[in-house]
Simulated scan of single mutants.
Amino acid sequence: MRAAQIAQHADDLHRATAFYTALLGAPPTATFDPPGLVFFDLDGQRLLLDRGAPSALLYFLVDDVTATVDRLRASGTPIETEPHVIFTHHDATLGPANTEEVHAFIRDTENNLVGLIEHRPL
């Protein structure tokens, strides 16, 4: 079993769509307005922006968390937590072996907290 879809709250679909298009580097795959639904493809899993959805805490894997935070900061995205190491993967139980897991947290345009993760080689 694997997750098929994640829903994220968005008061303003146009604003949220622009934010996630920039963050993900890809446009939505489908928009239905009304009723107010925007879908993105996350490598076979759907991200749904929906006015009626509750806020979710999403974590996105990025190649370089520091560069991603710098790019988002330059565009005015609020940075909640600067990049920091939270865990070292000595084996492959929770991530690639011999990497540090680096996290940062930002706020999207709808005030949802969003996590960014990098697996940085030791």
Rank of each mutant, 00 (worst) to 15 (best):
G44Q: 04
A104N: 01
R71M: 13
F19I: 00
L23G: 00
H9S: 04
A4R: 08
R2A: 14
S75M: 04
A3R: 15
H14T: 15
H103R: 11
N111S: 07
G95C: 06
F87L: 11
A56R: 10
T81G: 09
F105C: 11
A97L: 07
Q8H: 05
A92E: 14
I6N: 03
Y20R: 00
I106Y: 00
A67Y: 13
G76D: 09
D108W: 03
I117H: 05
G95Q: 06
N112C: 03
D33I: 05
R15M: 05
Y20A: 01
A22C: 14
N98V: 12
P54I: 07
F32I: 10
P83R: 01
D70M: 06
L47Y: 05
T68I: 03
D63S: 07
S55C: 08
I117D: 12
F60M: 02
E101W: 07
D70F: 06
L23K: 02
H14Q: 15
E118R: 01
P78S: 03
T21E: 12
P96M: 12
A3S: 15
V62S: 02
T109G: 03
T31D: 10
R71Q: 13
H89K: 07
I6E: 06
Q8A: 05
T77S: 04
F40C: 01
F60H: 01
R51N: 10
D11W: 12
L113Y: 06
T17Q: 06
T21V: 08
V65D: 02
M1E: 13
A67T: 11
H84W: 11
T93S: 13
I117F: 12
E101V: 05
L49M: 06
A18F: 10
G95E: 07
R15I: 08
G52A: 14
R120Y: 15
R71A: 14
R73P: 00
P34C: 13
D50A: 06
P34Y: 14
T29G: 13
P96S: 09
N98L: 15
A74D: 10
T99A: 03
R2E: 14
Q45P: 06
A74V: 12
Q8G: 01
V114W: 04
A67K: 10
I86D: 14
E80S: 08
E118S: 01
Y59K: 05
A22K: 08
V38D: 01
D11S: 12
V69S: 01
T29N: 11
E118Y: 04
T17F: 04
T66R: 08
T66W: 10
A53Y: 07
L122D: 15
R46E: 12
L49K: 03
H103M: 12
L58K: 03
Y59F: 15
D43M: 08
A53P: 04
L13H: 08
D108G: 00
P27H: 08
L48P: 02
F87D: 09
A67R: 09
G36Q: 01
R107L: 11
E118M: 05
A74E: 13
E118I: 05
R51Y: 10
A18L: 13
L122W: 14
L23M: 09
H103G: 04
H119I: 11
P96G: 08
G44V: 02
T66P: 01
L49D: 02
A3I: 15
R107C: 07
L37P: 00
A67C: 08
P35R: 06
I106G: 00
S55G: 06
T81P: 09
D50K: 02
T17I: 01
G52F: 12
A10K: 02
E100R: 14
E110Y: 03
E110N: 04
P96D: 09
D63W: 09
